[in-house]
């Protein structure tokens, strides 16, 4: 009986989510382009070195952002995330970005 109830609950949830139209979560990383001096990365690199982490190198510091996109169509969602990066989240003169989309 309990099992059947939870199945019904899951079905109801499923229907609700279907009606709401599913959300895509974008995980966005913005870092300085390779070749552009990253003073924070350099400072961290020196700190790691002085702590004895002799194998550490090329430290780059960036930003990590999560954005929920209320768009069911993954292609459209991706286009929207790309536009967000280009327009606001990254300054493409000095920064590069990458993102992954998860359900």
């Amino acid at each position: 009986m309990r099992v059947r109830e939870s199945i019904h609950a899951a079905l109801r949830r499923g229907v609700r989510e279907e009606l709401r139209g599913g959300t895509v979560k974008a995980k966005i990383h913005v870092t300085l382009k390779q070749g552009i001096l990253d003073p924070q990365g350099k400072a961290i690199e020196h700190a790691l070195d002085s702590l004895g982490f002799k194998n550490a190198g090329n430290v780059r510091v960036g930003k990590y952002m999560e954005v929920d996109v209320d768009e069911k169509d993954k292609v459209k969602a991706e286009a929207e995330v790309k536009a967000m990066c280009e327009k606001l989240l990254a300054n493409t003169i000095v920064e590069e970005y990458r993102y992954e989309l998860t359900a």
Partner: peptide, 10 residues
């Protein structure tokens, strides 16, 4: 044209 980066000395 251009962009600003953090000061080299931080």
């Amino acid at each position: 044209p251009g962009a600003m980066l953090r000061n080299k000395s931080l």
